[in-house]
């Protein structure tokens, strides 16, 4: 079976965006310029969603565009879907802001 296409935007990224719907068990060929990294999808990854390129421990930074897009809220295994169930934002968190922390 042909590998599914995915895009790594920056070499620093630990996630790739899949450019096709990917079923569990399928191989993903994630491209960053001339480099291609293969990862096996551990679960279904829909078009446009992100797959982990490495194991990401809980609380670690998640990188896309070479920038931090959030931190993992639970350990994420290589090949797993990366989305709101395992990543949270670190900015604009009114739910975490205490009276004293507000400026």
């Amino acid at each position: 079976m042909e590998a599914k296409r995915a895009l790594i935007i920056s070499p620093k990224d630990n996630v790739a965006t899949v450019l096709q719907d990917v079923e569990a068990g399928a191989t993903i060929a994630a491209r960053q310029g001339a480099d291609v990294r293969e990862v096996v999808a551990l679960e279904k990854i829909p078009f446009g969603f992100k797959v982990a390129l490495t194991d990401i421990p809980r609380g670690a930074a998640v990188y896309k565009y070479g920038e931090i897009i959030g931190k993992s809220s639970q350990p994420i295994g290589k090949g797993e879907l990366v989305h709101v169930h395992n990543v949270e934002g670190t900015r604009g968190r009114g739910d975490l802001a205490t009276q004293g922390a507000q400026q």
Binding site: G48, I69, G70, H83, E88, G89, G92, G94, D95
Partner: peptide, 23 residues
């Protein structure tokens, strides 16, 4: 007092695979 993610990214962003406001 709200996680901005409950406002923006808007539901359609999240449904399409955008995870955080930063992204």
């Amino acid at each position: 007092g709200q996680d901005i993610r409950s406002v923006n990214p808007v539901p359609s962003n999240i449904a399409a695979g955008i995870t955080t406001l930063e992204e």
